[in-house]
Simulated assay, not measured.
Amino acid sequence: MLIITLYMLAGFLSVLIGGWLFTNSMEYISHRYRIGSSFVGAVLSPILTSLPELIVFLIALLFYGGVSGEDVAVGTIIGEPFVVSTIIYPIIFIVAAIGFYLRRRSDTALEVDKALIIPFIVVLLLFPTVLLPALIRSLVIRYLVAVFLVTAYLLYVHVMRSRQGLVIEDYEGLYMLRVIRGYRIEFMPFILQLVISVVLLFVGSKALVEGVIDLSKYLMLDVMGLSIIIVPTATVLPESITAVIWTWRERDTMAVAALIGEKVLYSTVYPALALVATRWLLSVEALVSVAVVEVISSAMLYHVIKGRLTWDVALIGLIGYLTYVLILLHVI
């Protein structure tokens, strides 16, 4: 048990550092090419920070396969929106409260642009479609749903591109330039940082997949159910760190956009990939997690329409997370 825990911790830290470097690389690209903040937060940032989950998905299928590998893969994709909806927002509000207490922020609530109504509606309407292939056992329907989800995401990107907002001006610089000095052209340090990030993400993700499978066998718990809360908790760190930083700086729209943009990606493109590549059999825990995401997304959409997210969103998320854990442990 101790060895499994240490192994998963090493994978967790590897993914954390890799995601941290990825986030900085994303900021470099957005600053360098003058891409607006709304588009960066809701589209570009999720594409880059979701790579850890994608790597976990691919490793679970390619290196392990079988029932356990597919359960980890599917659980990771379904679990990411669940983890973001339940435990990440409470952390964001804690950061906001600390910032307010230290007079770094003017309010403990999150003031957001109503343009974020679009991604919230996308999640609310499309995320439940991942249940259809599990309920209707038809290969044709699975492929049709996959095509529909990818098409919907492309349309979403087009709409958000027209509302990209202001460019981030106070970029802190490429981290690798602090280690490698003397380069007048930033392209080579950027490539090096990107390569290091990929290696860390690969190694860490492989350790997490192995750990989840071994831990589930040791505790005699459902592999998919366990992967829904463990793997995404690690791989969601890149976008969570970005959201925390933006919350601390009182860029609330950017912070929320980074999180909801991630949920859009995992309500469309990645489920589409899983529909094609796996059997897509869902456990009871997976069904519960989808229901929790829908309830919390509905509550958040209501607040986004008002332009202000308050503490009750975090409370609903915590209740949803606790309910899921109790079901996983067969307490209820």
Rank of each mutant, 00 (worst) to 15 (best):
L2V: 11
I3P: 03
I4E: 07
L6N: 04
L16K: 08
I17D: 02
N24S: 13
R34H: 06
V40S: 09
A42Y: 09
V43G: 08
T49D: 14
L51T: 01
I55E: 07
L58D: 05
A60N: 02
A60Q: 05
Y64K: 06
G66F: 10
G69W: 07
V72R: 03
V74P: 03
G75I: 05
G75P: 03
G79A: 05
V83W: 11
S85W: 10
T86E: 03
I88Y: 05
I92S: 06
F93K: 01
F93E: 00
F93S: 00
I94D: 12
A97E: 11
G99Q: 07
F100H: 13
L102R: 14
R105N: 07
R105A: 05
D107K: 15
D107Q: 15
I121C: 11
L125Q: 08
F127Y: 14
L131Y: 03
L131S: 02
L132S: 06
A134I: 04
L135A: 13
I136T: 09
I136G: 01
S138L: 04
S138W: 02
F148V: 04
V150C: 02
Y153S: 00
L154S: 07
S162T: 12
R163A: 15
R163Q: 08
L177V: 04
L177M: 14
I180Y: 01
R181I: 04
R181K: 14
G182T: 00
Y183N: 02
M188C: 05
F190W: 04
I191W: 02
I191P: 00
L192V: 09
Q193M: 09
Q193T: 02
Q193P: 00
L194D: 06
V195R: 05
G204R: 13
G204I: 04
G204M: 08
D222S: 01
L226M: 06
S227R: 07
I230F: 12
V231K: 06
T233H: 09
L237W: 14
S240Y: 07
W246S: 01
W248D: 07
R251G: 07
D252H: 07
M254A: 15
L259Q: 13
I260R: 08
G261M: 01
E262K: 14
K263P: 09
L265G: 06
Y266G: 01
T268R: 01
Y270P: 08
A272I: 10
A272R: 15
L275V: 03
V276D: 05
E285R: 11
A291S: 14
V293W: 00
V295F: 14
I296S: 02
S297Y: 12
M300V: 09
M300E: 05
H303Q: 15
H303M: 12
I305L: 14
K306N: 12
K306D: 12
D312A: 09
L315N: 03
G317M: 01
I319G: 01
I319L: 10
L326S: 08
I327V: 12
L329G: 03
